[in-house]
Design a binder for these strands. Sequence first.
DNA 1: GGTCCTATACTCGTATGCGAGTAATCGGAA
DNA 2: TTCCGATTACTCGCATACGAGTATAGGACC
Lengths: 212, 212
Amino acid sequence: MPGRRKVGNLLALAVLSALVQQPMHPYEIATTLRSWGKDQDMAIKWGSLYTVVRNMERHGLIAAVESVREGRRPERTVYRITDAGRAELVDWARELVSTPVTEQSSFRAGLSVLAVLHPDEATALLRRRLARLEDGIRTAREAFAEHARSVPRLFLVENEYDLTIQEAEANWIRSLLAEFTSGSYPGLDEWRAFHEAGTAPGGATEGGSSTK
Amino acid sequence: MPGRRKVGNLLALAVLSALVQQPMHPYEIATTLRSWGKDQDMAIKWGSLYTVVRNMERHGLIAAVESVREGRRPERTVYRITDAGRAELVDWARELVSTPVTEQSSFRAGLSVLAVLHPDEATALLRRRLARLEDGIRTAREAFAEHARSVPRLFLVENEYDLTIQEAEANWIRSLLAEFTSGSYPGLDEWRAFHEAGTAPGGATEGGSSTK
DNA sequence: GGTCCTATACTCGTATGCGAGTAATCGGAA
DNA sequence: TTCCGATTACTCGCATACGAGTATAGGACC
């Protein structure tokens, strides 16, 4: 339970933002979100969607409108947003916008154990990341330009933000790589020495003996 | 299970990086991590720690060394890293460093529903965020400078990264705010109009009728 | 030398997350 | 006409995540 929200999953926010437009059944919500391009920043997990929707109903944020059975397909339950849901949407938006939270970042985690890799390998891997990142940025920029034709900028703010952050990361990696390759990074020699002596840096020297 | 890792929780990575130094019992791992300052980017959840450790043992990444009972305290099980664990640590580090993944960001989520707020409120909230962010950056910078006295820069890369990203976010917010306050942001008037007409933007006009 | 507060060191139960499975419909090719 | 694969629309159940609870030890203070 991240925080005090009745339904803490950010997927719930997406559901609210879809239902605020019009009543829908869960599958339609997913489709709408995907067409909206929200699936990029929030891969829709089927299992979660239905769990989240059920919980949202339980907490009165949404309410079932009808259960249609079209032909003999599985029953589709159509939901609409309630006033409580609308209030939650706004309140949640307020919180998310105004309060910075330190998010979990896998790259940060990777960096925190960067020392276990040989500096040359670390350099190569960072180059790899940079290349992929540049690729991703290019793609995102194109998709953004495409979308921007038909959608007002306000509805694409998150993408603009994303691009900015990714660029900042790319730049940071570039400058780190520059220090690595020029040899100006402090402690680079010790780092290299540790690894070439066949031991992990920061750890005690251990012969790699059998484990079992 | 994020990916194919036997134990996908990033906490497991932290555990490995602690145990690579020397065998420890779980509580000691937590303490070590905290002293290392890793708790900032990865709040240690007690429940998770023990679950993760158990799973890691099950998968052979770590192994129990001994179960000491000091006095009449609860039994403490000391774990050491195995060769498989060491291999996992390195392999995991490689992946995390080389492969960018689009992480979940609550701010991005917030931005994606920014339109549900009145532009004036959005502006105020962004100002609020910016102030808090600047505060956090200042604090982090000081902590970093302090640490940098005793710890080589290599072991603080993640913090450097973090600062860079946070600054990028702050700058982005600043420029967005500038556009909002100068009125140069496209669509600002429509945005305002939507809200002042008493309806959510992008949605159909709906009288706020009773819900139940 | 008794009491209180904090630190140590976990355990347990529950809510949640989510992959994998299921089943019906539909459009097109053979 | 029938078969096949894709699409629609969910359900189920297990593994995880994690808060809250528990219980002992040690030191400070009076």
